[in-house]
């Protein structure tokens, strides 16, 4: 158990430290000017020294990411289900969602500003726009690959379509569902930052970076990038945590004791 934790947590941290090490090596060893690439420490200091300014901006980005992600996940799931269940809808909607993803989001942002104005709404829409697609595609795929014998068994037992869906089809699709949710999680922050670039009137993390850039404050540019990345990774890890928590059968051979009353009654 301890060994597994070490492998699952220690090794990824080590690999990130390695990236920092390589960065340090290139900058110092290659005599790279600090206005082109700062040392890792300078980038980190640029963030920590401005923390009180940055924190509200970070919160703003997180808020856009969460709202947009949740909306995208729910919409993506619902769309996947409807498309899987009604073939006509699938044929009708698939080209549209494909086109929606072929449109470069960055080109879409100004259009959204025209329609929705500034504020948080266009950012949420962009995040949703990016997140729903992998969820829909994976849900569609998952529901399409449920063992037909299992569905037949449910029919023989006299199960309704709804119960078959809830008890068989959805749980059988958890792996592809979470693949979609994880891909969405890692792109969600990108969406939020694109939204901030195109549609910020006041303050935002993306604009903060732009200001730093125009002031030739390279360390802050790098530092802000790290912060954005960390938000994305944190969100991804949260989704991974949700997957681990909700699919215990993928790692355990025996279920944990249940809270349900009577479930472990030895006299039963």
């Amino acid at each position: 158990m301890r060994r597994r934790v070490l492998l699952n947590v220690g090794v990824p941290i080590l690999s990130l430290l390695l990236v920092l090490g390589v960065w340090q090596l290139i900058v110092v060893g290659g005599h790279v000017a600090s206005y082109i690439a700062p040392r890792p420490r300078a980038a980190i200091t640029a963030v920590t020294s401005q923390w009180s300014t940055l924190w509200p901006l970070i919160l703003g980005t997180i808020r856009e990411t969460i709202y947009g992600y949740l909306l995208g996940a729910v919409l993506g799931f619902a769309l996947g289900v409807v498309m899987a269940k009604i073939p006509v809808v699938q044929r009708l909607v698939y080209p549209v969602i494909l086109v929606s993803q072929a449109v470069p989001v960055i080109a879409l942002a100004p259009v959204l500003v025209i329609i929705l104005g500034f504020g948080i709404v266009p950012k949420i829409v962009i995040v949703t726009w990016i997140v729903f697609f992998p969820v829909t595609v994976n849900v569609l795929d998952g529901l399409g690959h449920v063992d037909p014998d299992l569905k037949n068994l449910a029919r023989v037992y006299g199960a309704s379509r709804w119960r078959t869906f809830v008890q068989i089809e959805v749980p059988a699709s958890t792996t592809p569902l979470f693949s979609g949710l994880k891909i969405g999680a890692i792109y969600a922050v990108t969406g939020a930052i694109i939204g901030e670039l195109a549609a910020s009137e006041g303050n935002s993390l993306a604009l903060y970076q732009e200001h730093a850039n125009s002031n030739l404050n390279t360390a802050a540019v790098y530092g802000t990038t790290i912060v954005m990345t960390l938000i994305g990774i944190a969100w991804f890890l949260l989704v991974v945590g949700l997957e681990v928590w909700s699919t215990p059968w993928q790692r355990r051979s025996v279920a944990r004791r249940r809270w349900r009353r009577g479930a472990d009654d030895p006299t039963g």
Binding site: D147, L150, R155, W249
Partner: peptide, 17 residues
Amino acid sequence: TGHVGYMLQKDLLVPWR
């Protein structure tokens, strides 16, 4: 449907239960 018990060569146990 709903009148017989039915079992195949494939056990069709669901892994999440």
